[in-house]
C-alpha cells in the first residue's frame, strides 16, 4: 500500500534555497544586490572621500584625474556620492517597504478574515488612500513634517500600502474558504493563530513578490522626492544627485546618467530576487 519511494525530509529553508539557486536570473539579481549592499556598508570606509567636498574642477568627465565617475557641477566626487547615496536609497527602500507591508498586511488580513462590516470599513479606507495622488500626498506629508529620513520613509510607506492590503485581502478571501482552514477550525485553532500561522504563510508568495517590487518602487519614490528637492540636505541620495545636476544634463550627461543607472540596476536586481523568491517559497513548484 505504501510502496512509493521514501523521501528525505529536509528543512524547508534548504529546499527553498536549492530552488532559488536553480533560478539563474534570481541568483544574478542576488549577487548584484549583495555587491550594492556591501558597497553601501563598507564603501564609505574604503573610499573615504567626503561626498560634500569640492575635490576637483567641476564637470570633469569620468576617468579624469583618477575620479572614476568624474565630478559634478560643484566639483564633488561622483563616485563618493554614489557610494554614500546607496546607503540612503537602500535604507529608505527597505524601511518604507516594511512600513507599507505592516500596514497593508494587517488591514488586508483583518478585512479578508472577518468580512462583513469590518471589511467594508477597511476597504473604503484603502480606496480612499488609493485615489489620492501618491507623489502629491507624500510631498504634503514631507513638506508639513519636515524632510528628515524617518519622515520620508513614513510618507512613502503611507502612500504605498494599498496594493499590499488588496493582495492580502484577496488571498485571505480565497484561502479562508479552503478545507484545511476549516480543518484547523475544527481542531480548535484560535482566530489569531488561524490568521497569522495558517492563512498568512499560504498567502505569502504574492505578498513577497509585491514587497520586493515595493522596495524597488520605494527607491524610485525616494529618488522622485529628492529630485524635487524634498530630501534631507545633510545626506546624499541618488535622486538628489540627479535633481541637483538636472540643469546640466546636456553639457555633462554623465552626472545624471550614472546615478540613474545605479537606481535602475538596484531596482532590477530587487525585482529579479523577488521573482526567484516567489518560485522558491511555493512548495507546489518544488521538485518531488
Amino acid at each position: 500500500m505504501t510502496d512509493e519511494p521514501i523521501q528525505k525530509a529536509r528543512s524547508p529553508f534548504i529546499e527553498a534555497w536549492e530552488m532559488f539557486a536553480r533560478n539563474r536570473s534570481a541568483v544574478a539579481g542576488l549577487i548584484i544586490l549583495v555587491l550594492i549592499s556591501l558597497g553601501a556598508v563598507f564603501g564609505p570606509a574604503l573610499y573615504p572621500t567626503d561626498p560634500f567636498d569640492m575635490v576637483w574642477a567641476p564637470f570633469s568627465p569620468p576617468g579624469d584625474a583618477g575620479f572614476i565617475f568624474g565630478t559634478d557641477y560643484l566639483g564633488r566626487d561622483l563616485l563618493a556620492m554614489i557610494i554614500n547615496g546607496a546607503r540612503v536609497s537602500l535604507i529608505i527602500g527597505l524601511a518604507a517597504a516594511v512600513v507599507s507591508i505592516v500596514i497593508g498586511v494587517t488591514i488586508g488580513a483583518l478585512a479578508g478574515f472577518y468580512r462583513g462590516i469590518i471589511e467594508e470599513i477597511l476597504m473604503r479606507i484603502t480606496e480612499f488612500f488609493q485615489v489620492l495622488p501618491t507623489l502629491l500626498f507624500s510631498m504634503v506629508i514631507v513638506a508639513l513634517f519636515g524632510a528628515s529620513l524617518p519622515m520620508i520613509t513614513l510618507a512613502i510607506g503611507i502612500v504605498s500600502w494599498t496594493a499590499v492590503a488588496r493582495i492580502t485581502r484577496a488571498e485571505f478571501l480565497r484561502i479562508r474558504e479552503l478545507e484545511y482552514v476549516m480543518a484547523s477550525r475544527a481542531s480548535g485553532t484560535k482566530n489569531a493563530k488561524l490568521m497569522f500561522r495558517i492563512i498568512l504563510p499560504n498567502a505569502l508568495p504574492p505578498i513577497i513578490v509585491q514587497s520586493a517590487l515595493m522596495v524597488g518602487s520605494a527607491i524610485l519614490f525616494e529618488a522622485g522626492l529628492s529630485f524635487l528637492g524634498l530630501t534631507d540636505p545633510n545626506v546624499v541620495s541618488w535622486g538628489q544627485i540627479i535633481g541637483s545636476n538636472r540643469q546640466y544634463i546636456l553639457d555633462a550627461s554623465y552626472t545624471v546618467t550614472i546615478p540613474g543607472l545605479a537606481i535602475f540596476v538596484t531596482v532590477l536586481a530587487i525585482s529579479l530576487v523577488g521573482d526567484g523568491l516567489n518560485d522558491a517559497l511555493n512548495p507546489k513548484l518544488r521538485s518531488r
Binding site: 479552503l178 478545507e179 484545511y180 476549516m182 480543518a183 484547523s184 495558517i198 504563510p201 499560504n202 512548495p283 507546489k284
Partner: peptide, 11 residues
C-alpha cells in the same frame, strides 16, 4: 474531510 488535496495545509 472530503478532499485530501485541499484539507491539509500545504505549509
Amino acid at each position: 474531510f472530503q478532499d485530501p488535496y485541499s484539507s491539509l495545509n500545504p505549509r
